[in-house]
Amino acid sequence: MREYIFYFLALVSVISALMVVFSRNPIHSVLYLVVCFFSIAGHYLLLNAQFLAVVHVIIYAGAIMVLFLFVIMLLNLNKESEPHKPIIIKFASVISASLLVLVLIAAMVNINPAADSHPTLHTIGMVRELGDTLFKEYLLPFEISSVLFLTAMVGVVLISKKES
């Protein structure tokens, strides 16, 4: 049962990721990317990372993709305005991506990472364990990330401000 769910989610994520690349309308790309993010959240649920699944859906599908949609609407790009690329560039990118897959799989095929795994502790994805780690060992990075957000906010306002 669990294998079938994994294969279904993997199929959905790979097909929607391909559609992100190959669809000509940017709005369709955004919507396919939302589908891909939901399937990745499903993978997180299958891996017992429940908190990360919820955070992933909220931040990626809820905030980041809405930002993308908002910018596409704002810049009025919701039409198939991209000029036709020469076919050789498409072939070159497909071939180089396939070569990347080949190299990475050839590097991974002979090692067995499952050998030294001991998946006994099953509750590490819950809010209690993650919050415990976050607010004890990772307190300084957590606080620094708030400074990062403040900097990003100031920078975004400064960059996108209309020059007078």
Partner: peptide, 25 residues
């Protein structure tokens, strides 16, 4: 999940945080 180590999920949490800031900029 497979090694029972919580630090991988913490790294993913911070990657999501940085990705949100990166997309905004």
């Amino acid at each position: 999940a497979y090694t029972g180590n919580v630090e991988g999920q913490m790294v993913v949490f911070f990657v999501i945080v940085v990705a949100a800031a990166e997309v905004a900029v």
